[in-house]
Every structure is written in C-alpha cells, then in structure tokens.
Design a protein around this nucleic acid. Structure first.
Lengths: 110, 110
DNA sequence: GAACAATGCATCGAATTTCAATGTATTTTG
DNA sequence: CAAAATACATTGAAATTCGATGCATTGTTC
C-alpha cells in the first residue's frame, strides 16, 4: 500500500476543487498544483488526467478553451454552471469523507 | 461523483485500521463496522471485500482462523507481525493524506 | 409454520479506473 | 546544443470495483 494509492477515489473531487479555486486551469498546471499541494505524493499521470478532463467536459461539468501561449497551446478548463453545482456537492462530500476517515483513525471521538 | 466513490483508494487502509483496533474481525463484521463509522456511506460489497482479504492474506499481511459460531462459520482475520508494520505505515499515510485533502479544501493554511 | 430479512462465506464477469509507455512539438536551462 | 521541462494526447495492460448470483443458517414477522 502506497500513499499515492489513497488518492485514487478522490481525484475527480480534487480536480474540481482546484479549478474552482483558480477559476481556470490547464492540464499540465493541474498536475503541478496537485503535486505541490500533496507534498509530492499525488502525481497525476497523463493517462489518468486527460481522460478524466474529457469525461468531465462530455458530461457538461467543465468547458474548455484553447489559448495560445507563445507558440504552444494551452487548453484551459473552467466549471460550467452545472459544474459549479457538482463542485459544491463534491466539496461537501470531501469534507464528510475526511470526517469519516478521522473517525476510523480515532474512533474515541464518537 | 458519489461520496461512496471517494473511499475507493482508502479501503485497504481502513480494513487494516479496523482489524488493528479490534484485534480480530470477520468479513461480515467489517462491512457492518465500516458502514456504521461512515454514517452509512461506505458500503463494502462482498465482491470487493473478500478478494481484498484474500490478497492481504496471500501477501502475509493478514492471517485467518475459522471459528464456529453456532452452526455457521466465521473466518476471523488478524494482523501478522508484518501486517502490524504495514498497518502502521498505512496509518501514517492516511494521516498525511487527510492533511493534504484539507490543504486542497483550504489552501490558505499553507 | 412459512416467508422474509439478516448473517456469513464466496465466486464470476463486466465495467471502470489507473498506470506506464509512447508520440509529437515547443521552450527553457545548463 | 543537448537535456529537461512544458504541453497536448492515445493506447493497451493491469488492477479495482460492482452487481449479480449462489449456498446455508438464524432471527423475525405475519
């Protein structure tokens, strides 16, 4: 069991959370920000991130816009209106989840 | 995104944690305890739990003992010596993970 | 006492998720 | 100028997870 494995179920919630905070983000930026905040533990691979972003866009949670940055392109993602709702639900779920994890670790505080 | 999904990556750590606290536990008991502590959110299905327990036993993290309870059998699992080490690592990882999740939710406290 | 829910083990196939590898191209750094 | 970083993406394999199913016992309810 690797600490990296723990993040598996929470990746989507984290991505929505980061985009919400920053307003808009591009893929590579998400991988860097996630790594930074997690103290290096959450290394989102491309094979995980891009399919996830595409799925979220297909579902109508995210919208994207290509913007040139010098000679290369960045694909910026932001939350749609529906996405904001989704993110808010995800945020509540995350907080509950954290609370439950703490219960598991420290069942005395029942 | 369902709150249940969040638990995916942390299932193994939670199972080890519960067995550590209780000394020994059988499969069905684990599903009930997990559900209870998570306020009903973590419903570990049999198709998930039993393969996981078997894997952990095959790896030498858990050992099992069949004990009769009335006319039916319960298969009790406990941590091996190696399993205790594993569990301690998992516990530390879980705490770090929780800390990181809180960072994602509340990045001000950097 | 018959039916149904709960307890207790388990497997199986499908679906989903995730990783590692690979590909292309530009920009920055040593 | 070569290597590392930036930036997009796909693909196939591996791992995980779910839902359905199966079997047997025990407890509850009508």
């Amino acid at each position: 069991m690797n600490i990296t494995d723990l993040y598996k179920g929470s990746l989507e919630a984290i991505v929505l959370q980061l985009i919400r905070q920053q307003g808009e983000m591009y893929g590579y930026e998400l991988t860097q920000k996630a790594r930074e905040i997690s103290g290096g533990h959450l290394k989102i691979t491309e094979g995980t991130l891009y399919p996830l972003l595409h799925k979220l866009e297909a579902e109508g949670t995210l919208s994207s816009e290509l913007k040139p940055y010098g000679n290369r392109m960045r694909k910026y993602y932001r939350l749609t209106k529906a996405g904001v709702q989704e993110q808010e639900k995800a945020s509540v779920s995350l907080q509950e989840y954290i609370g439950h994890l703490q219960q598991f670790l420290n069942p005395k505080l029942a």
